[in-house]
Design a protein around this nucleic acid. Structure first.
Length: 561
RNA sequence: GCCUCCGUAGCUCAGCUUGGAUUAGAGCAGCUCCCUUCUAAGGAGAAGGUCGAGGGUUCAAAUCCCUCCGGGGGCACCA
């Protein structure tokens, strides 16, 4: 918050550095901002402790300053803020900017491509992590000032579809009343088709069916269209449920033809070659894998379709600075190859703009999920399970209306699931422990939500905010103010690293600091009216920043729970 | 064989990009306390660690480099 003041002071004693050279001290007793002297020590070949001492003794603080004290400690020059001034500055800023507090000015246009469920296949817990990550990354980038295009690339052609359609034909089309039943039926059909693919006779039937889908055979199209629509309707319900909306839905059926055309061009240019009847990319000279773009039956693979997709993505939205693909780590080789081919096709358009954000697998304790084995953990099932438990364990005991209870339980359940995904690094694998996610204690979504509702509850009782600022702050108040002041730099860090984890850690720290404050500092019946007003402003600011954190995570804040 | 991600307390994980503050941080589980007080889904305290192993670079390594061990994922006609 007062970085510029510190830089100015350092400049006045002949040290010109940038914000990057300053650090946040690990402990309160080391002050609020520090300048480590190790680099100077290298340049001047002097003991860093001496340098730090020299700097600290040279500094003469102005009479009126937001910096209260400067002190050398070891190799660090530590700056201590005047907390009364810090409080005034932070509260003023948060209360003025509200949901825009911490908003950055990076004006990039970024496509975030995520979700990508396949039609005719179950929507599982891994898709849930995907959407959670993609939505949060999108919101974080937006808060950094970028314009985000949310894209979703859904697979609606290919062997998996053929397997499912074969299964439907084999099982016989049932009369199904509800969407849930239809989705369940598709799941069964897929498993059936997948089994049949193991057998040579039925395998050929499935391949034939696949051809018919690619060739848009009218007889097959009818069934394809109808069942595809089931999946899409179902996905729409889930997207809405997890607070996501897409600007553009892409389909494999839409990019297959264009993708094939591009592979022909790439073949002419010598980027792709022919081998054993297939069109392939031989990545050896780039240290990459060999991958097939068009198979020996003439069907475009996922690779060829990707070329068609990229072409669309980079032409439909004007100048795009970056395209982030939120996809599992098993596609790492695939993306390295397609990114390379795209770069070779049009360097100016694609080079260094494509990025694969790989998130780790989600497992249950029983083992890896696979829709082929039919032992998937459905996304919706998980959300419903969390909701049921939250409702039973806590919300039922509250005294508001049934309708409100359901709404609150829903928001808390979605938040619990999302937070469980986001609190670990994107690349880490998650072994999903349902009991742990349900337990709602410690570093969890419900804990953050709860801190937020405590803010709301006080503010509701207080009715209005006064404007006085306190002079002597309690340690809990100081800590809270300090944390509030750090929000903008956390947002920047999360955006730079595409890492929602930092927001989770920050939100947890803020919630803990608020709980401490709540415990030690009475607000509504504070000793004086002035103090009460100051604390109310502090509560309001905490509510705003906690709310911002939740929104960046894609979680809906609730006012009571 | 090659590529890639991961290995930090009994369990789940921060910290590693940009090496530094004589005590490596949390949360769960277990132990001790705190509800006449703004929702105890809370707060306080004690306990718990050869940072996978071994080398190296450095004044300084959980963090950088190398080797090895263990695990996940991938490496041509699936997506």
């Amino acid at each position: 918050m007062f970085e510029n003041e510190v830089l100015k002071i350092l400049k006045s004693v002949g040290i010109t550095i940038t914000r990057e050279n300053l650090e946040n001290p690990p402990q309160e007793e080391f002050g609020d901002l520090s300048f480590p002297c190790f680099h100077l020590s290298k340049e001047q070949k002097r003991n860093p402790n001496e340098i730090a001492n020299g700097i600290a003794s040279k500094i003469k603080l102005p009479r009126v300053s937001v910096i209260e004290k400067v002190e050398a400690r070891g190799a660090y020059v530590n700056f201590f803020y005047n907390y009364s001034k810090l409080a005034t500055t932070v509260l003023k800023e948060v209360l003025a900017k509200k949901e825009n507090y911490g908003k950055g000015k990076r004006k990039q246009k970024i496509i975030v491509e995520f979700a990508h469920p396949n039609t005719h296949k179950l929507f599982h817990i891994g898709h849930l992590r995907n959407i959670t990550t993609g939505e949060s990354v999108s919101r974080i980038l937006e808060h950094n000032g970028s314009e985000v295009v949310r894209a979703n690339y859904q697979g609606d052609v290919g062997l998996h579809i053929a397997k499912c359609l074969w299964g439907i034909k084999n099982l016989g089309m049932e009369k199904l009343s509800s969407l849930d039943k239809k989705i369940e039926f598709l799941g069964k059909a897929y498993v059936e088709g997948n089994k049949a693919y193991e057998n040579d006779n039925t395998k050929n039937e499935i391949i034939e069916l696949n051809r018919k889908v690619y060739e848009k055979n009218p007889k097959v199209m009818k069934l394809w269209k109808e069942t595809r629509k089931w999946s899409l309707n179902y996905f729409d319900i889930i997207y809405k449920r997890v607070y996501t909306k897409f600007d553009r839905l892409y389909f494999e059926s839409e990019v297959a033809e264009p993708g094939l055309k591009i592979t022909k061009k790439a073949l002419k240019k010598g980027i792709l070659t022919t081998s054993e009847g297939a069109t392939i990319f031989d990545g050896e000279k780039y240290g990459l894998d060999k991958r097939v773009f068009v198979n020996n039956l003439g069907f475009p693979t996922y690779e060829a379709k990707e070329l068609g997709l990229a072409e669309l993505e980079f032409s439909e939205f004007g100048k795009v600075d970056k395209c982030v693909h939120v996809v599992g780590p098993e596609q790492s080789s695939f993306f390295k190859v397609t990114f390379k081919v795209e770069e070779l096709l049009d360097s100016k358009k694609f080079k260094d703009k494509q990025m694969h954000l790989a998130y780790g697998w989600v497992r249950l304790k029983e083992g890896k999920m696979s829709s082929r084995l039919g032992n998937v953990v459905e996304g919706e099932w998980l959300l419903n399970e969390l909701k049921k438990n939250i409702l039973e364990k806590y919300i039922k005991k509250q005294d508001y209306s049934e309708k409100e209870k359901l709404e609150v339980a829903e928001a808390v359940a979605i938040g619990a699931a999302k937070y469980y995904f986001l609190k670990v690094n994107v690349s880490s694998e998650i072994s999903f422990d349902i009991n742990e996610a349900i337990s709602m204690e410690g570093n969890t979504g419900p804990y953050i939500q709860y801190a937020y509702t405590r803010c709301c509850s006080i503010l509701e009782k207080a009715k209005k905010l006064g404007k006085k600022t306190s002079q002597n702050l309690m340690p809990e108040e100081k800590k809270l103010i300090k944390i509030l002041s750090l929000f903008p730099e956390i947002v920047k860090k999360s955006g730079d690293e595409l890492s929602p984890t930092h927001i989770c850690n920050y939100a947890y720290e803020l919630s803990t600091a608020f709980s401490n404050f709540y415990e030690k500092c009475r607000v509504l019946n504070a000793e004086t009216e002035e103090l009460k007003n100051f604390r109310l402003n502090l509560v309001k600011s905490s509510q705003i920043v906690l709310g911002n954190c939740l929104k960046l995570l894609g979680i809906e804040p609730v006012e009571k729970m």
